[in-house]
């Protein structure tokens, strides 16, 4: 079960994910992310209440971030990551010391340890 709570504040959309962001709920998450980035300039994602997250959801966050850069929008974390999310990022091999080559200069990667989401 995944519950996606949407809060709008002017140009900014806050997506709060609660529960299981897994393959079973991948389509639901995809739709929310896509619509969010298409309709808002600034999308923030709150992963503090995630109980489990798998590769499918993680790769979607990666894709959303990349798309936001290409579409000249902003996609960032809001708040802290839940322990489940932190460990999923580490065990899936996504954790990075530096951003990926597809991240343009000055934009923080979703997986890099050296920068935070406060930009």
């Amino acid at each position: 079960m995944l519950n996606i709570q949407q809060d709008v504040e002017q140009d900014r959309l806050l997506l709060k994910l609660e529960g299981d962001a897994t393959i079973e709920t991948a389509s639901q998450l995809h739709q929310a992310l896509l619509e969010g980035l298409q309709n808002y300039k600034d999308v923030q994602i709150d992963c503090s209440a995630i109980e489990s997250i798998d590769l499918y959801a993680l790769q979607m966050l990666c894709s959303a971030h990349r798309s936001s850069v290409a579409w000249e929008k902003s996609f960032t974390y809001s708040g802290i990551l839940s322990p489940a999310a932190v460990s999923a990022i580490a065990t899936s091999g996504l954790k990075r010391d530096h951003g990926c080559s597809l991240c343009p200069d000055g934009v923080c990667c979703m997986w890099a340890v050296s920068c935070t989401s406060s930009s």
């Binding site: 393959i23 995809h30 298409q38 499918y56 979607m60 894709s63 091999g93």
Partner: peptide, 22 residues
């Protein structure tokens, strides 16, 4: 030590949520 390569992940509008790109 595990490193996931993200190079094949498409942009969000191209992405099929139930496929594995890593």
């Amino acid at each position: 030590q595990m490193v996931a390569h993200t190079g094949d992940i498409p942009s969000l509008d191209q992405l099929a949520p139930e496929e594995c790109y890593l």
